[in-house]
């Protein structure tokens, strides 16, 4: 035992031994990441070159799947829906989060209670709130149509907000903003609390109005938090599936479209894989540009 230790000690320097120890510590994580994340990604890329057959051999197609996906008008429609969804939910959650955070940064009675209640949509399980929303928007029995048509008379006829493909995307956007703004709010609030109050006092003395204080103090202070929030929200919502699919299957964003392609109907796994690869490339490209331009890394 002592002998092995001495040989080990003589063979490696202290620095090298520390490096080995470091590798040993992260090895389990590396193995998990390789097997659970990297392997499926690579296998998925591999599958995208094949016509996948469940009960027989896969046929190699080359770039045929990718070509077919790229020429499919439904695919471009899905890209359009995704961009619309991502842009509006990102702007919505960020703005709403900022506004609410600024309001919650002021002193008022029972602030502690309101601050924690605001987090509710974010912590509630998605499946329970989704069912509640579906019930609210049911065309015949839901309270939304009852208010709009019977009580307020804004519309003369009931219609299916959550079911019709045209309007459903806006319900999905509203739902996502409602569900996810508390996260942005939480991040903004913690940043706002750390801003030096003296700066606002100095601005007051200089005669700055509310907008000027926001424009020249608050905004620069929260800029990088905002940048990170926008990036995260874009990544998350670009790949969002469960919130949209559970709420309404009619909003065919890329993830839902891919699910239908791969698992419903004719079950074209190869094309599904090709779709995911294209989606992945789009996202990576975006992130690279964003990180360089906006976050200035």
């Amino acid at each position: 035992m002592i002998q092995t230790e001495t040989t080990l000690a003589s063979r490696f320097t202290l620095r090298q031994r520390e490096q080995i120890f470091g590798w040993a510590l992260i090895l389990p994580a590396v193995v998990i990441i390789l097997s659970m994340i990297l392997y499926p990604i690579i296998y998925n890329m591999y599958l995208s070159f094949f016509d996948v057959n469940f009960h027989g051999k896969n046929t190699y197609l080359g770039l045929e799947n990718h070509k077919e996906v790229a020429l499919d008008p439904f695919f471009w429609k899905a890209v359009g829906t995704t961009v619309l969804y991502v842009v509006f939910t990102t702007v919505g959650t960020t703005l709403l989060g900022l506004i609410v955070a600024m309001a919650m940064n002021k002193r008022f009675p029972l602030r502690w209670l309101v601050r924690s209640l605001i987090l509710f949509p974010y912590v509630a399980p998605v499946i329970s709130v989704v069912f509640a929303w579906q019930f609210l928007f049911d065309p015949v029995q839901g309270i939304v149509m009852d208010l709009m048509v019977e009580k307020l008379g804004i519309f003369s006829e009931r219609f299916n907000l959550i079911g019709s493909p045209k309007s459903a995307v806006w319900i999905a956007v509203t739902f996502s903003i409602w569900k996810n703004f508390p996260f942005a709010y939480l991040m903004f609030l913690s940043r706002l609390q750390a801003i030096d109050k003296n700066m606002y006092e100095a601005a007051d003395i200089d005669g700055a109005n509310g907008w000027a204080k926001f424009r020249y103090i608050t905004l620069p202070e929260v800029y990088f938090v905002m940048g990170a929030l926008v990036l995260l929200r874009i990544i998350w919502n670009f790949n969002k599936f469960e919130e949209i699919y559970l709420l309404t299957t009619n909003v065919k964003v890329l993830s839902v479209y891919t699910y239908f392609k791969a698992f419903i109907g004719t079950m074209e796994m190869g094309q599904g894989s090709a779709l995911v690869v294209i989606q992945f490339l789009l996202l990576i490209g975006f992130i690279l540009i964003y990180v360089k331009r906006v976050l200035k890394w």
């Binding site: 015949v140 029995q141 299916n160 079911g163 019709s164």
Partner: peptide, 18 residues
């Protein structure tokens, strides 16, 4: 039909006289 995509769940509407 009632508005929007419909499926068997809408038997509720019948039982409610709608």
């Amino acid at each position: 039909n009632p508005p929007g995509p419909q499926t068997w769940r809408a038997r509720d509407y019948y039982l409610q006289g709608r």
